[in-house]
Amino acid sequence: MSKQIKHYLGDKDVQVILGTLLRVGVILSTAVVLLGGIIFLTTQSNHSVSFSEFKPEQTKFSSVAEIIVGLKNMDGLAIIQFGVLLLIFTPIARVVFSIFSFLMEKDYMYVIIGTIVLCVIITSLYLDIAH
């Protein structure tokens, strides 16, 4: 029983760090999206928009490389997409963190399971599906 309580407390520490990680991720990405939004609105708020037809070739900043190039020019839309990327990476960071905590617990079965999940996500980063 005492071993179980100890185990539970150890988990609790990990959970607190995880909670902080998630909160920081969400706050940071919202702040970046907000900044990009302000730049975008101050420069283009009178332009007209229509999304009634799906034209993927017109979507700006649809890859990590494009977003980085846009960031250098302080493009509002690129900054928004960077914030979106940060948001996407927040749960991924949680997986990475979990793998490390399994490693510290010497639970190698779950190090492998976590790595499989991470590999699937990384694969999705490179997946290029026809429209």
């Binding site: 939004g37 975008f40 928009v49 979507t59 890859s63 990327l85 749960p91 999705s124 997946l127 290029d128």
Partner: peptide, 22 residues
């Protein structure tokens, strides 16, 4: 975590438009 996996693919497919995402 699940949404993160599909979001990356949707980003590449041009379905995540910054003007809507913001």
């Amino acid at each position: 975590v699940t949404a993160a996996a599909s979001a990356l693919v949707y980003l590449h497919k041009g379905q995540i438009d910054p003007a809507i995402a913001m």
